[in-house]
Every structure is written in structure tokens, then in C-alpha cells.
Design a protein around this nucleic acid. Structure first.
Lengths: 211, 211, 211, 211
DNA sequence: GATGAATGAGAGTTCATTCAT
DNA sequence: CATGAATGAACTCTCATTCAT
């Protein structure tokens, strides 16, 4: 019982934060290895070389641990991708930066991303409904991408298409790539990134426009 | 105790086959509702209105049931999609038929597909490795698509690109669409299909070629 | 998960009923020996020579088991005491029959009564409130006694007093006696019964009336 | 580790004594609210606004804390009741003073008494035997009452009866009243006290004697 | 073919206690 | 004096599986 630190909660000590990171890291490794369904607290604790109770001490429960795992990686991803996109000039470059930085992040954190996807797909509320894998859950993630699409259409850089639909297919392509990076040991991320950039570069062009 | 019917096994009786289908159907519904992790045999049996032991009688175990679920839907999908593609004339039409028939199948069997994906992502061998979600597991599925790509390049209908990579991104787009159909209650499959057709139609064209 | 048999539930099989009785009996013995707080399902199962899971199979959970224990003894007590009281002629004899049959039942089922009291005092709802040890919980038990008091006052056999208050003090005396029978190995129940009969015989008499 | 202060132990400092009282008071409130079984040290510490370790520092363990709780209230009760009885003139008045002061103490310390009874009924030695709720445990409490009974019989104020048995039924009536005060929110203690005084006044009279 | 009954392992969680700081 | 951190045992409950009928 220690899950303060939302708004108004007390600051967590440095040492506690370190433990939490250690436990989350252990969870990531265990999930990557044996899958969410077999990632018991006992296994995670053993992998971390600590007692089971420690996890209960630092997290409100298994769900809390898993949730924190998701949040942590999500924040981490945003911190990596946001600046790359912001640094790009013009919608087209922003789009390409978005795709490339996403894939680069996945390549650099494959195990972590694998665990994240496993948790997102499996974690459910007490009432049995998915906690993350829902239409609502994706909104926050897809909005910035939709913004880029719309900006491109406003400036005339992009052609005519449904911005939301296009954004969705870009997200699906990225998530699918994550799956491949996880499943395929020798996956060529750079080559795949180039392919994806070409794919959506073509898809967002104005009709009749060539480079 | 009864999972013969591979090579050399006895033929299964009609009534037995019906029971198996009933149990698999129940499993599909339960998984769709509560997720793979909460789909216990007890729950599946209760949902089907039968005793737990019946499942053990007709399937070698839980893993066998889940495997059969996957196989059954995979066969069913192939039976639906194969003819549509075969009926199309020319690589481009085959590609579009492939995409459209896949999405149509998903739309018509959303719950079933949801359960399938859940099982595929979660089911593991005794040694802990994914039973379906592996690089090997996908091969069989992606080969026909690669064939279409290569055929198109041979005939000159398609431009230059890595056929395997293109096939992978098509598969990812389809699988992503399945996820959307599951998560988004009001998902517009027809609109999305049109979008995807345009996307990969553009992607496979020769450079400089417009319609 | 098997706790049907309320209204509309299916009949329980003979063999199942036997198991339930066996488990409850084991629970009684364990509680008598080590107290409610130390009466774990593991201990109860071991004492009964069965596996832990059997209890979960026949009862919805620990609370259900404990509740059934209470209900069973309550019914059993009512079956013993009711006829004795009904057979008595006149309010005074009914009162004495009530006291004597209660104490006789306690003497004959001391361990059972000990377990019952332990459960009643300790079992709580999920919300933390006592499940049996509440003002509401006693109502059903005390009503018949109040009826005897009022009948005696109506007929003129009893003097003036608050019927409810008198009933309460009779109940307290009986419950206190149960506690003594449990705690005091050589408790003389017959002597105590005689004492209690005299006590409340005097208390319910009309003022100035001697025998 | 600090539970000296028996014979030969060092005097406890004022501040330490205050901490102990604070912790016991917190334990009383927690037990009253959630029952002995759910009164964990963590809960008691949190309720008191202190760290768990503080309890361990001031008490040898949970059992020690609970024991001290019982002792403290017992002493407190004796300090209240003793003088009242001592001030009464004659056995009959002493008996009435005993009953009235007991009930008054219960009314004034209902929560405390509730916690005490909970602990007394549940606390057990390491060997599993009740620490307080035993025939031995009651002796000290009942002796003064027996003395009053015998004194009354010696002086001729009381009639013939077994002094010990009468004392036991008085104690049971008092303890039962405590239970009622705890369970019944609107319990009328004054009315009940009057009833009890009349009850045992009648019971202890000489045969044939009216007021 | 089908059922109810039983098993035993393993899950998440709570808890009293200990200890370094 | 007090705290936060950690431990390890025990708890209830769920589950896939087995087996006699």
C-alpha cells in the first residue's frame, strides 16, 4: 500500500523510486520471456532476487505494477518521440519523423515494448473490461498524429483523405512493426522504416503529384 | 483423451464433431467477453451448459482446445478468402480481393477473430515459447500474399519493392484492422477497406504511373 | 461454487450433503480447539483428512462455510427446543421448559455451541460489519421468548415487567451459561439450570406472591 | 523490545507511557470498528498516525499490546467500581452498587469494553489455548462478588443459595449487558440497570420476604 | 459419453516481525 | 526514538487435471 504520488501524494524517496524501477524492469524481463499470463509475482520477485512481499509493499497490487509499467514506458516513449517530431519542419517531415522515431524507439526498447503490448492486451479492470485496449485508450495516442495529418491538409502538403483513418492505419503499421521486432529475431528495422516512410509518403500525397 | 484424427486416427463421429464445435464456440464467446486469461475451462463449460469433464473428454486439455479453436478459424478463413482471390483476374485485383475478403471475413466473424487473436498472442508451449505468435507461425499465412506480390512484379503490374516487406505491411494492416473491429464498436469496415485498398494500390504501383 | 439450495436451487445429492456435514463437523472441532481466528481452511481440511480444494468445491468460500455452520446449529437447536416448549402447559411451564431445554441442548452440544458462538462473534460481512452479532441478528431468536412473557402477563401468571427486557436478560443468562459450559470443564449444568429456573421464576412472579 | 516494568524493570518515562496509551487507544478504536480479526498492527498504526515500527518498539509484539489493552481496562474498571462498592453500606447495597457501577462503567466506556471483550474472547497463547477466556481467568474477577454474597448470607440479609452460582449468574448478566450496549445503538442502560437490580434483589432475598 | 467429486499446485494478498539507518 | 524497508509464512481462492461411477 504505497501508491500515492498521484496529485497531492507525498514525494517518493529516491531509494523507493529505484526499487520500483527495479521491480518494473524485472516484470518487463519476465513478461518478455514467459508472457503476461505466466508472469506471476513470485516469478517476478525471484527474477529480481527479492521477496514476494516487496512487490506488495511498493505497489498496491499486481494491477498497479502492470499499470505503472505501461505508464512508465508510455511516458518514456513520448519523451523520445515528441522532440523528434517537434524538430521537424513541415507536415511531411513531421510525419516521417513520427514514423522513424517510433520505430527507432521500438528497436531500442524491444523487450520493453513487448511487455507493454502484452500488458495492454491482457490487463483488465475488476469488472472484466480491458483497461488499456479500448477505443478510449487509444485516443490520447492518436490525436497528435491526426493533428499532423490535418495540418498537412491545411497547408496543402497532403492530399485529400480522412485524417483519422490515415492516422489509424499509420498506428497499426507501427504497432505491427513492434510485433515483428519482437517475434522476428533478425528483423531489419531500418529497412522496414524506409518502407513505411515510402508507403505513407505516397499515401498522403496529392493526386498526380510525383517527387 | 480422444485427440486422434491426425494421420491414422479414427474418423470422428458426427455427434462428437458437433460437441467439439459447441465447445469451441463457447470458448470463443467466453474469451471474447472476459479475455484469454480469465477463460477457464469451468467458465467455458458453464457457458456451454455442460459439465467440465466433457471438455476433458473431447480435448486432450486446455491447450488442445485452444489450438483447435485457432485451427478451425484459420481453416474457415482460408475457405472464405481463397476462392475470392482465386476468382480475381490479375495481380492487382488479386491483391484488392485479398484485402477486401480478409476485412469482410473479420467483419463477419469479429468475436471469433477476437478470440483467435487472444489465443494466438497468449498460448504458449510447455517450454514457455509462443505456440503461434512466432516468426515461423506466420510463414504459412504470408506466403500466398508474397506470391501475389512477386507475380505482380513479374507481370509488370507492380513496381519495384521488397515483396516480403510489402506483404508484411499488408498483413499488419489487416491484423490492425481486426483489432479495431474488436475494440471500436461502431467501426466502419467498408470505409476502412476502401482506404486500405487505396493505400496499397498506391504502394504497389510503378513509379510515375497514375490511374 | 455450489451454494445453491436456497429457493429454486437444485436438490443436493445425498453424498454431497454428507460431505458438507463432514466439513462443517471438522470446522466445529477445529474452531473449538484453536478458535475462529486460527481455524484456517487448511487446518479444517487437514483435520477432516481431505484436500483444501474440497472445501472450496462444496462451499462458496470460507464465509459460506461458517454461515452454514451457524445455520445448521441454529436449526438443530430450534428443532430440539421448539417441541419441548410446545409441550409445556401454561406460560410458567413454557418458560421453565425454554430454559431447561436450552441448557440441555448446550450441554449435549458444547463444542458445537462453542464454535457457533465463536463464529457469530467474529464473522463479518465484506464491508466489515458483524454478520450475526447485531441487534437485527438477535430479533428472530428473542421473539418467541417475548411471546411467552407477554402471554404470561395476559393470563395473569406473570407479574408486571417489561417483557422485552426480561427476555433479553433470560437470553443473556443462557448465552452466559453456554460460555461457562465451554470454559469450565466440570461445569454442573443441572445445578445451574435449577438455579436459573428459580431466578427467573422469582423474577416473573406477581409481587407478593409466594409458592 | 521494552516491556520491562514488571518487577525489577526500570520505570517507564512519562512520554513513553503516553505513547503506550495512545497506541492502546488506537487499538481500541480499530477493534471496535473492524473487529479483533481485522485489527492488524498496520491498521492500528495508521489509525494512530504513526509508523508500524513504533508499536514494535513499545510493545513486545501484538499479543503484548492486546494483553496490555486488557489489563489497562481491567485496572481502570476496578478503580471505578471498587470505591462505589466500598462506599455502600450493607451487603444488599453493595450488591446493587456493584451492578450499577459495572453497568455505568460499561455505558461510559462502551467502545473500550467492546474491544476488551473481543480481545478476551480471541487472544490465545502460543499453544492455542485462550489467554483470558478460561475458568482460571475469571476467578480474580468473581471473587469479590462471591464475598458479597457470602457476607450477605452471614449477616442474614440474603437467603439461601449457592454463592458462587449466584455470583456467576450476576457476572453473566453484566457481561451480557455489555454485549447489548455494544450491539444495540439505542440501548437504554438505565432502564436495564433497574431491571437487573430488581432481578437479583429478588433472587437474593430470603424466602417469603417482601419489601 | 458424461458427470460430479477430488486433488494439488500455484495464484495474489496480508501480516507480524526484524533490522539498518 | 522513530522510520521505512524487507522478509517469509500463512491465508483464501482458482484452476487444469484425473478418476470412479
Amino acid at each position: 500500500m504505497r501508491s500515492e504520488n498521484g496529485t497531492g501524494g507525498q514525494q517518493r524517496s529516491f531509494i523507493e523510486e529505484a526499487r520500483r524501477r527495479q521491480i518494473i524492469a524485472s516484470a518487463v524481463e519476465v513478461i518478455s520471456e514467459v508472457g503476461y499470463g505466466n508472469a506471476s509475482l513470485a516469478r517476478i520477485a525471484k527474477h529480481a532476487g527479492i521477496s514476494k512481499g516487496v512487490i506488495s509493499y511498493h505497489f498496491a497490487g499486481k494491477d498497479d505494477l502492470m499499470t505503472q509499467l505501461v505508464v512508465q514506458l508510455y511516458v518514456s516513449g513520448a519523451e523520445h518521440i515528441g522532440p523528434k517530431v517537434a524538430a521537424a519542419v513541415g507536415p511531411r517531415n513531421m510525419l516521417l519523423a513520427y514514423i522513424e522515431s517510433n520505430l527507432a524507439f521500438i528497436a531500442a526498447n524491444t523487450n520493453y515494448v513487448a511487455a507493454l503490448m502484452d500488458v495492454v492486451l491482457n490487463l483488465r479492470d475488476t469488472d472484466g473490461r480491458p483497461k488499456f485496449a479500448s477505443a478510449d485508450g487509444e485516443r490520447e495516442i492518436i490525436v497528435p498524429l491526426v493533428d499532423i495529418m490535418q495540418e498537412g491538409q491545411r497547408t496543402g502538403d497532403f492530399g485529400e483523405f480522412d485524417a483519422l483513418v490515415m492516422a489509424k492505419s499509420i498506428r497499426d503499421a507501427i504497432d505491427g512493426t513492434a510485433g515483428r521486432a519482437i517475434r522476428e529475431p533478425d528483423f531489419d528495422m531500418d529497412g522496414y522504416a524506409a518502407h513505411m516512410c515510402r508507403l505513407f509518403d505516397l499515401a498522403t500525397r496529392k493526386v498526380g503529384e510525383n517527387d
